[in-house]
């Protein structure tokens, strides 16, 4: 079979809703595209642990301390699942990790920002995880089957994180004025980043991942789902939005006008120049470099008889 014939069959298989397993034949572009996509997802999970990790030391109760630790632990667990799936596509986890700590690979924009106070945990746990769940649930029917299998578990755990985040939010919302202000202040800082999280409008023609059904829905479609789901809940709690402010449409949607979105901050973040990027990456890099001996101790056979 020629390459063109194989490619034709592959495209047809995908068009009919067929799934791809690691050992199946796939075009190089598909393999590379899926690898890069899952690698970024994995990077985002492990980098996503960092902002929340910074909040863990000042958790306001023992229960919150444990549940936040457990939540961050889950995110690390997601990275573990995803790196393993990505690794099977031909790039070692070690190489992915080196690329990450050297700042050569990408992760989600929201994780480049600083955290200040407990309200950040509410925003991250409820809204950022909520945004992530909308995008991840849309991938459950992805054409790359090993990805969908780990996503199933990831989405189940994200559901729990959402409850955890909403629970924290509701305590703040029904608490003291200072507690309410914690949420509002954090919302003001994070809102634009959350909108950026979904990315600019998808180019359906050019997006190979959409064509091959690795992704199944466009950025704007996902953003809309998120807005419709969360904006009313936030209004109900008596909080308000900074720019870009959502407006209700006549047909019952919550809309954000494209011209209201300032894309400028996202452009520098795409180059790994977010406000916290260098500090977080350099911490990670330092730990990585200082602990080569751990990797050696784990990977090399015993040299001393114990």
């Amino acid at each position: 079979m020629t390459y063109e014939e194989k490619l034709g069959r592959f495209n047809e298989h995908i068009a009919l809703g067929g799934k791809v397993e690691t050992q199946d034949w796939m075009p190089d572009d598909y393999r590379r595209g899926v690898l890069k996509f899952i690698e970024m997802h994995a990077n985002s999970e492990i980098m996503g642990a960092l902002p929340e990790r910074e909040c863990l030391p000042f958790a306001p109760s023992l229960q919150r301390k444990m549940s936040l630790a457990a939540k961050i632990q889950d995110e690390v667990g997601h990275a573990q699942l995803l790196y393993r799936v990505a690794e099977d596509l031909g790039k070692s986890r070690e190489a992915m990790f080196v690329d990450l700590v050297q700042g050569r690979s990408k992760f989600h924009n929201v994780f480049h920002y600083p955290v200040h106070q407990w309200g950040d945990v509410a925003i991250i746990g409820w809204l950022i995880d909520g945004a992530a769940l909308v995008t991840q649930a849309a991938l459950l029917d992805s054409s790359y089957a090993p990805y969908t299998r780990v996503l199933k578990r990831i989405c189940t755990e994200e559901q729990l994180h959402l409850r955890h985040g909403e629970d924290i939010t509701l305590e703040l919302a029904s608490g003291t004025d200072a507690q309410r202000e914690m949420f509002q202040e954090a919302l003001n800082r994070w809102w634009l980043a959350i909108i950026h999280f979904f990315g600019p409008k998808s180019n359906v023609e050019k997006d190979l991942l959409l064509r091959w059904k690795v992704k199944t829905r466009t950025n704007e479609d996902l953003r809309q789902e998120f807005l419709d789901r969360y904006v009313p809940k936030i209004f109900e709690l008596g909080f308000h939005f900074p720019t870009p402010t959502p407006h209700s449409s006549e047909d019952g949607h919550w809309l954000i006008k494209d011209e209201d979105i300032d894309w400028e901050p996202l452009n520098s973040i795409k180059k790994n120049e977010g406000p916290e990027t260098e500090r977080r990456l350099s911490n990670r890099r330092a730990i990585y470099e200082d602990h080569r001996w751990v990797r050696e101790a784990l990977s090399e056979p015993a040299v001393h008889a114990a």
Partner: peptide
């Protein structure tokens, strides 16, 4: 707990 998210092996 300060190692959560930072430990040298995932």
């Amino acid at each position: 707990s300060e190692w959560t998210g930072f430990a040298p092996h995932i």
